[in-house]
């Protein structure tokens, strides 16, 4: 008998990617336009009146933060809708009745959401190179942070999708928690620029670690150490995996 249902994983992954491709222009145009707007406003208008931040031009400084901002929100919204929608329309019965383990289902859904996030991240990076000169000092770590963040927050989004009982709850976590944390997470500034106590308070914001680590991979400078960034990312991913394992084990909001 089949040990791993590869064709099942592929069926879900492919269908999820097709769902994305149906709106491919929207998927590409949105990040391109948003990025361009940020560069015009922050890079051009405000950035021209700002000095360098940590030895980096302000326009280039915001590129990693901008990528993170979009990757976080996109990962969460894609993965949460990916699982919430079948739950809402009832088509989830087919997934639950298939010879597919929880791990395989997560791999397919989260894999598809993370793929899209990585693609969007790269599109933003490409768009940014038209406006500013972007250097990448540590390309390996840049890709690693991009992948880990996309996967971790797609897992988080998947959990929200299972947890949400209605569309309001589905939108609540991204808009009320993630967006504020991202804006206050040093996407557009170095937390060193903040007065105390806000600098210390910021160190409790998980997004600070993501943006800092990612920015380090570009310019070799970060607000916190790379080890702290990596440690945080790994811990967050482990927490999401543990939570998901428990959800599938108990059938939480999936199976009565």
């Amino acid at each position: 008998m089949l040990r791993i249902n590869r064709s099942g994983i592929w069926a879900i992954y492919r269908t999820e990617m097709q769902r994305t491709l149906r709106t491919v222009w929207q998927s590409i145009a949105t990040p391109v336009i948003t990025t361009a707007l940020y560069f015009i406003v922050f890079g051009g208008a405000i950035g021209s009146r700002m000095q360098q931040v940590g030895g980096v031009d302000y326009g280039a400084f915001i590129v990693p933060g901008l990528m993170m901002l979009t990757i976080l929100t996109q990962s969460i919204s894609n993965a949460s809708i990916g699982i919430y929608f079948p739950k809402f329309t009832g088509t989830i019965f087919e997934i639950l009745s298939a010879p597919l383990s929880a791990f395989e289902a997560v791999l397919a859904y989260v894999g598809a959401a993370a793929t899209k996030s990585v693609a969007i991240g790269l599109i933003i990076l490409l768009t940014a190179t038209f406006f500013v000169k972007v250097e990448i000092l540590h390309p390996f770590w840049m890709v690693a942070f991009l992948l880990i963040t996309s996967i971790a927050f797609s897992l988080f989004g998947f959990i929200i999708g299972i947890w949400a009982k209605n569309f309001e709850q589905l939108a609540m976590v991204p808009s009320l928690v993630v967006t504020p944390l991202t804006f206050l997470g040093g996407a557009f500034y170095s937390i060193d620029m903040l007065p105390e106590p806000w600098r210390t308070v910021s160190l409790f914001n998980p997004v600070v670690y993501l943006v800092s680590g990612f920015r380090w991979s570009f310019y070799g400078v970060g607000d916190v150490s790379v080890a702290a960034s990596l440690g945080f990312m790994t811990g967050f991913m482990a927490l999401c995996l543990a939570l998901l394992w428990w959800m599938f084990r108990t059938g939480y909001r999936l199976k009565p």
Binding site: N5, S7, G8, W10, A11, Q18, E94, I95, P99, L100
Partner: peptide, 18 residues
Amino acid sequence: DIFATVWNTVRFSRGLFG
């Protein structure tokens, strides 16, 4: 899935079941 085509959704089910 109301946006899928007949062929795709049936093919999906077959793949899903391995």
